[in-house]
Design a binder for these strands. Sequence first.
DNA 1: AATGAATGAGGATTCATTCAT
DNA 2: AATGAATGAATCCTCATTCAT
Lengths: 223, 223, 223, 223
Amino acid sequence: MKASRWASREVDVTGSGRRKRADGQESQRRILDAAAEIAGERGYDGTSISAVSKRCGLPASSIYWHFTDKDELIAAVIERSFETWLAAVQLPDEQAGDPAERAAAMSVGVAKALLETPDFLRLGLLLTLERRPTEPTARTRFLQVREVARDRVQAALDALAPGLPEASARRLTTYALAGADGLFIAHQIHGDDVDLLEMFALHARLLTDAIARESADGAGSVP
Amino acid sequence: MKASRWASREVDVTGSGRRKRADGQESQRRILDAAAEIAGERGYDGTSISAVSKRCGLPASSIYWHFTDKDELIAAVIERSFETWLAAVQLPDEQAGDPAERAAAMSVGVAKALLETPDFLRLGLLLTLERRPTEPTARTRFLQVREVARDRVQAALDALAPGLPEASARRLTTYALAGADGLFIAHQIHGDDVDLLEMFALHARLLTDAIARESADGAGSVP
Amino acid sequence: MKASRWASREVDVTGSGRRKRADGQESQRRILDAAAEIAGERGYDGTSISAVSKRCGLPASSIYWHFTDKDELIAAVIERSFETWLAAVQLPDEQAGDPAERAAAMSVGVAKALLETPDFLRLGLLLTLERRPTEPTARTRFLQVREVARDRVQAALDALAPGLPEASARRLTTYALAGADGLFIAHQIHGDDVDLLEMFALHARLLTDAIARESADGAGSVP
Amino acid sequence: MKASRWASREVDVTGSGRRKRADGQESQRRILDAAAEIAGERGYDGTSISAVSKRCGLPASSIYWHFTDKDELIAAVIERSFETWLAAVQLPDEQAGDPAERAAAMSVGVAKALLETPDFLRLGLLLTLERRPTEPTARTRFLQVREVARDRVQAALDALAPGLPEASARRLTTYALAGADGLFIAHQIHGDDVDLLEMFALHARLLTDAIARESADGAGSVP
DNA sequence: AATGAATGAGGATTCATTCAT
DNA sequence: AATGAATGAATCCTCATTCAT
């Protein structure tokens, strides 16, 4: 920290001059905060340990005390970001309202969480789209987490329309997630020109209609 | 790269026996091919000039003869990829069928093009999601191109439902593009477990229904 | 010259769109002009062929048609710069005025030439101070040219004070040149805050006095 | 640099058997030593980080641990060289001798320091003469240091001739520094064929005479 | 629990130069 | 007489990682 005369490196970001005699958890948190911001903006390759070090104020070597390597660091970022994001999602009361209303409420809950903590999905999508020679642990982790989300959506869908054929359910679940991803991206591009809550509500409505029809059809094959 | 001057280093991509005959356009094409593949897989930061050099068989310094820097190279990749992609999109006959059928045909045309040349949208989305300190020219270019696509979709939508209020049209256009992006991503994740053509057809159907309803409503505000 | 779509290189500096069907001397002149400017500002290492190419509007390979390599190019620059500079020096009429006046006139003549074409001495001094592993031809050339100048100054000095002992003459000649170099540098640093003509006149006066004294002394050893 | 980790690569400059014990200050010193030698010989552009790395035995990346970039490294070189040089200058006793003797003693003191540590002024003059598009910090630093030296010379001059008009004082100070620069260059060219101490003594004498005359004149305008 | 220092590999880019046309 | 294209070596600098303290 005692930057030499010619090369200034980390800065005392906290403002507290007194070196805290090692608070592992606090340091880890600062590292993850920094890494989450950067990785959410730049993806895997764009996230350098030295950039994280600069942003969190700890030397690069300290990052390696807490995480074995970059791969694990970014995996940890995804995990913690997911938890944060999940905490932000407020699911509607299972009992309340009719099914369609519940679906809309769920949808809007997700949208709100995305507005509050967008880094999670941004990084997740970046990891998903990138094809590195050795797949990062973080990517695998994100896809696992996404699979869990997928299962929940499908469960909600089954609750909404118990008679829906398996194939239809899978298709509509895929469509539900795809809409969420796509609308999130639209919001990334156009900022608040795209009203994410409104768009998610529209998405929920179209989905509800589709469920209704495919339920009635019985078959649900798309000609 | 330590190979002597006459040892064959690069792969004879062209199949034509004559090599080293200094054909600028051909070299440029090889560079763009290589860069498109890599950038489509790895994004901006993940695309290293030396990787492009290795894949196209020309030394890194030769790449700089054809493109002033990495930024311009990737911008050129986006431009050419877009042209290729656009050529792959087969738009339906303007006269044929009823409006809903035409919408479905358009949608499937886009899906087919995405299956044929997925690199374009993959790179585009990577560039869109990444937030580099200095915005790459390629990102700007992609967003411009996307805006053109957006205008076309909106025009098609207006043709389909002339009475649609402006706000509805904008919202549905956003939804149309978002669905395309999201379904593309789903296909990236699940491969052929997701039938992209079927999903795009579903997307077109839901959109057509939504248009019909919002047209009838007159207002179309989502409560 | 037909810059490709992605990499813009040389510019049509002359403004004449029509490619002149090869005018060797004219091209050579343009190259030397460009090289002189750049080398006068940046020294040997700082002068890159591509910078010269950019400034003169001819491709790098054309420079190699006129000059075998960078070393020869810079040597040619020194030679031509010297000629230009020499032409700018107006030596006083050998007959006119008393010796001291003639000395002053010579001095001012040199100063004026330095103000008009400063690149010559700037490059010369840069080459002189630099110690490259393989001595550039240009440096040798400059030192030769300087030796000629030295001889002329010493001759003028002998004419001024025929009885001056050899050692004194050498010493004062060295001093005369050193003053010129040093004042030139002062002018480089302070710009027109240093009145070069005035300073050269002062230099001439001090020298004349010194000559007078050392002539009288006979010995001229500095204790 | 392909040598295995334990093969001795660098020269044991310190003489102390223990190596690799990570001593920051010592490494910094070795880097500065190497950089000073090279920059003193080759100027800014001619000083490559890899050359410095080779000469000091540390890998190039280690240089970047100690200095943020080449610009700062060379600025540090100038600063340290100046300190070394200043320590080498032995100024005469303020009380001793008559003013003219003191002036001569000062002059010779400077000359001796230049003979001992010529790298400082050599690099300084190279930086002064070079005109890079972005001015190196080192150049600015050198000119600042030079301004300080200028002030001291002018103070000494005022002490020597209190009644001297301001304009004369400035002119003679410029002349004093110019002579030093020029004679230093002469010594660089001719080596020990030019007796630097003798030349500086001569310079001091001419200056003293000039001061005397301009003092007497009162005005000191050079016609 | 942390960090200053070091390190080899690789990043983008520029270099001087060559050569076929 | 000139030039488009190519090329290997070198440029500055950042990378992920290690290790002794």
